[in-house]
Design a protein around this nucleic acid. Structure first.
Lengths: 337, 337
DNA sequence: CTGTTAGCGCATTCAG
DNA sequence: CTGAATGCGCTAACAG
């Protein structure tokens, strides 16, 4: 009754459904006048071709999935912004999935996405130390997959990362140059590909500068703010580092809070540099030195790779794109006077 | 060939497609043993029921759309987080649409969503001073709509907002109590429902305190940082306000940058308070006094209203939920000593 | 340029 | 408890 479909529209116009359908597809095989007649009535009756029907018929969804650990996070929201930009240009829709860093959720999302709901997936992964076989099923279904930022090294697919090793190395050297001799490394998950690369840069920079590294100074944190503050407070009290390298933004912020509460002066008592996509790092007290990944660009790069694969009929590709992070030195790591 | 469907699965099991289908639906009308046989083979063959086919058949999509002006924004990303939480619990999928505050895009998204792609829409609107008739078409299609934060007053639908008027009033009074006599109001779009409410709170608080308001102190800004800095710099130089009330986070941050560049001391020379969802407002230099909306709660509230409508068979509802913002006084607005 | 026909994959009557 | 048959709304041959 209230629901309009192609049949009714056709009857109304004394046309066949195929002609009506043609009016909506790019198909040039149609008289211009009738096409306009169709579109005009369609517009009037507020008709839009049913998405499920055409997708069922065409075996494609014009939709991609974006799977990320979290969204209330500057890096990811900026990256999604970039992905959106590319997808929208191609007329694609975007489904968002948040894993909360829960590997189970990731698996369940992926498994559900085998249903033809999407033509491709962009993902920043969650559970490193696991079996990633479930991802190979996607290949069989010709659903291309592109990793960005956090990747699984053992899966052969397109990846967009940043030059984490080099940035870590440089950031660590920067601290050393500015006088640090005992630099702690704050990490959330050492087994993540990213955690590993960043840590390696840190360690190599230490030994290149004859500082060596101590297990004690690798501080394992979590995703919980209060817990992190506690861990960091203890680490600072116990080991008295003169420099802190935070591998993740939230750990630098937790450190700021701890230092402020404990009256530890930044950068006089302790210098800090951190991976961070915070746009207002310069407004913090003191301004925070950052290694900033090009989040938006990484998003667009990942999306572009995905569409390349989609247009290649779902053939998975394995391009590897590495984007350069920028190190911005601010007061938190400046040389004490 | 490689694509598995219900028919092949049925043949493989020597069953009819209907039986296989029943195994996947809640339907109790099936032998437990056969059900397990089906599910087990399905799992092995990596079969997932085709989403478009079942949605076409069932006339529902298990998907909702979230339309917001932007995503790289603390308020919206936290709100989306809340929406996601509720939707995921219900087994729903989430499509994201970013309008970039462009009314044309908003209209085009909405029109496209008539295609049965979604069962409902949560939206924070973009173009106030326009004709909103296109939204009424959704009702005819029984696609419920819930506004949150930014709403159209002339559309009769469910809305989740925060107590903007009261918070603005209190925030303004707070500045007055702390000694401000000449308070500028920074706004992005005066015609937005929100812009209006917040401004009204500001104006009423001024007059209640016998300060009256001057057109000159209502500073119209944009979404472009550099432009805003210019506007704010000029306003400060010309009118020398001793207080600034930013109706939107980004304007407060622009003000910080201007003050820092121009050597204007906060809070000594000028006090600032702002609507903001920045979690680290306390770490800024100086720490920023904020009016913080319960973004996550607003998201969950909106999603809950939407599902209420969806479960009522798409009957639009018009519940009005008002969430309370929290005013957090920090150093940026503190009384000078 | 247009109409006829068939079928995408699944869920649901209706029989049995 | 299971199977056969029908159609959700649309598109793409294939004729004409």
């Amino acid at each position: 009754m209230d629901s309009i479909n192609i049949k009714k529209l056709a009857k109304e116009l004394n046309l066949s459904t195929s002609t009506v359908s043609r009016a909506f597809r790019g198909s040039s095989d149609i008289n211009k006048a009738t096409k306009e007649r169709v579109l005009s009535l369609a517009n009037e009756l507020n008709y839009e071709p049913n998405h499920h029907a055409s997708n069922l018929r065409e075996k494609k969804s014009n939709t991609i999935a974006v799977i990320v650990p979290e969204i209330a996070n500057n890096f990811f929201s900026q990256a999604i912004n970039g992905i959106e930009r590319v997808a929208r240009e191609k007329g694609y829709h975007i489904l968002i999935y948040l894993t909360d860093d829960d590997f189970q959720k990731e698996m369940s999302f992926i498994s559900n996405l085998q249903s033809g709901r999407v033509d491709g997936i962009v993902m920043s992964v969650s559970g490193e130390a696991n079996n990633h076989d479930y991802l190979n099923k996607l290949k069989k279904k010709k659903i291309p997959l592109v990793f960005f930022d956090r990747v699984y090294d053992d899966i052969d697919t397109a990846k967009v990362t940043s030059n984490d090793y080099e940035s870590s190395y440089s950031a660590t050297e920067h601290l050393i140059m500015n006088g640090c001799r005992k630099i702690a490394y704050l990490v959330v998950n050492k087994s993540h590909s990213i955690g590993k690369m960043r840590m390696k840069g840190y360690i190599d920079a230490l030994s290149a500068n004859k500082l060596g590294y101590h297990d004690d100074l690798i501080i394992d944190c979590s995703n919980d703010l209060e817990q992190n503050k506690k861990i960091i407070r203890q680490a600072i009290k116990k080991h008295k580092p003169d420099g802190i390298f935070a591998s993740v933004e939230r750990l630098a912020l937790a450190t700021y809070q701890v230092c402020s509460a404990e009256q530890v002066q930044i950068p006089e008592d302790i210098k800090i540099i951190s991976f961070s996509s915070l746009e207002i790092a310069g407004l913090l007290n003191p301004s925070l030195s950052t290694i900033t990944q090009p989040a938006w660009e990484m998003g667009t790069a990942a999306a572009n790779l995905l569409f390349k694969a989609i247009q290649a009929d779902g053939q998975n590709i394995n391009d590897q794109v590495v984007c350069k992070s920028e190190i911005i030195e601010r007061r938190s790591s400046s040389r004490s006077v």
